[in-house]
């Protein structure tokens, strides 16, 4: 199902079953900026950024189907592999580099994150939280790899080869010496987890997380 919501109204998007995480990402991007979306799918986020934020938004997407659909929609998307092609982008060529629900599918998450912070002044990363309580129960009680709406694949066919938890990601941010500017966790109903909660609560209740990072 393709959501083509062109609104930043979270509750409206939520009630229509749309992707709240895309709205959260788009809100973190300053209007009118130059944006590179790494793993842009068929271009829903690019469209949202262009129409609601007036961004010069471009994408990289691995799947031919995604690229074809996006380019046919008039979006600037390049067929390519983020694990390789990010190296070809010059320093500081974008204001924001976005990795939306793609981090866990990259072969080299750390390298990708470092490249993002080299290419853009800011990086926005959203990912499914493997530390969510339901994932933990799947593992702890059932002894099975979790399968959820956000992580719909069985272990043997998942493209997601590098799952992490919110706390794992926070540790990676420290490792690559980036500054964390904002963080949002969304619970399973798409509502934001309260900001003044400690990390371990976010890690338990957040089904997805969105981080805005910048270079130190």
């Amino acid at each position: 199902m393709v959501h083509r919501d062109r609104t930043l109204d979270e509750s409206a998007v939520r009630s229509q079953g749309g992707r709240v995480d895309l709205v959260v990402v788009a809100e973190m991007v300053a209007p009118g900026s130059r944006v590179l979306d790494v793993g842009s799918g068929d271009g829903d986020l690019l469209d949202l950024l262009a129409t609601t934020r007036g961004c010069d938004a471009r994408g990289i997407e691995l799947s031919r189907e995604g690229v074809n659909a996006g380019v046919a929609r008039g979006l600037a998307i390049v067929q390519g592999d983020a694990d390789v092609d990010l190296a070809h982008y010059p320093d500081d060529s974008f204001d924001y580099v976005i990795l939306s629900q793609t981090l866990q599918a990259t072969r080299r998450p750390r390298w990708v994150l470092e490249q993002m912070l080299r290419i853009g002044r800011h990086a926005v990363v959203s990912f499914p939280n493997f530390g969510h309580w339901r994932s933990r129960i799947d593992l702890l009680i059932d002894g099975r790899m979790p399968v959820t709406d956000n992580m719909p694949y069985a272990w043997y066919e998942t493209p997601n080869i590098h799952f992490c938890t919110i706390r794992d990601f926070v540790a990676l941010v420290e490792t690559v010496d980036a500054r964390m500017e904002r963080a949002v966790a969304l619970d399973s109903s798409g509502h934001r987890v309260r900001v003044n909660m400690p990390w371990w609560v976010w890690n338990l209740l957040g089904e997805q997380a969105v981080f805005l990072l910048s270079r130190k």
Partner: peptide, 15 residues
């Protein structure tokens, strides 16, 4: 495409 990216031009590429 890599050259166009490096030059900052707007580019789409489909294989």
């Amino acid at each position: 495409v890599h050259a166009l990216n490096a030059s900052g031009a707007s580019v789409s590429y489909a294989e």
